[in-house]
Amino acid sequence: MKKRILNEMRTNELVDAYAQIGILQYSALDDGKISKYNRLYDEKRAIEEEMKARPGDERRALMVLYGYPNMQVRLNAATATLAVAPEPARRLLEEIYASGWPPQAYDAGMRLSALDDGTFKPK
């Protein structure tokens, strides 16, 4: 998505687009399409940056995705909200890790380890 388009979207539209990206990432991982996953990652980051730049840092709006049925969507939302809602975001990462659902559980475990050892600092 182009930055100009993101600037014109309402927060709820960004949240919906964010969820759709997570669903597509999940499928890309399942199908072994890493280049597609990476392109989607860039789109996901652009949405996070747009939300962060808005007054009051609107990344909190992504917390509505904590209960989303897709594991990748929940993982993305938890990671994106670590800076604005650290306790609930960490709890969600712990739940995903405990689920053992690959590869999202592995990603959650790596994020938790990086948080604990200080190599990952949410911004």
Rank of each mutant, 00 (worst) to 15 (best):
M1K: 11
K3Q: 15
K3Y: 09
K3S: 13
K3D: 13
R4V: 13
I5A: 13
L6I: 01
N7V: 01
E8W: 05
R10V: 00
E13G: 12
L14T: 06
D16Q: 15
Y18T: 04
Y18D: 01
Y18M: 09
Y18S: 03
A19I: 02
Q20C: 06
L24H: 10
Y26V: 00
L29K: 11
L29S: 08
D30C: 09
K33G: 08
K33M: 06
I34T: 15
S35W: 04
R39C: 02
L40I: 00
L40P: 02
E43K: 04
K44Q: 11
R45N: 13
E48N: 13
E49N: 12
A53W: 01
R54Y: 10
G56T: 07
D57Y: 02
R59W: 06
R59M: 05
M63K: 14
M63Q: 14
V64I: 14
G67K: 07
L75I: 08
A78S: 10
A80D: 00
T81M: 04
L82I: 02
L82F: 07
P86Y: 08
P88I: 05
A89G: 13
E94V: 03
E95Q: 15
Y106K: 15
G109F: 05
L112W: 01
A114Q: 14
A114W: 12
A114V: 04
D116M: 11
G118L: 07
F120M: 11
K121E: 10
K121G: 11
K121H: 08
P122K: 07
K123M: 13
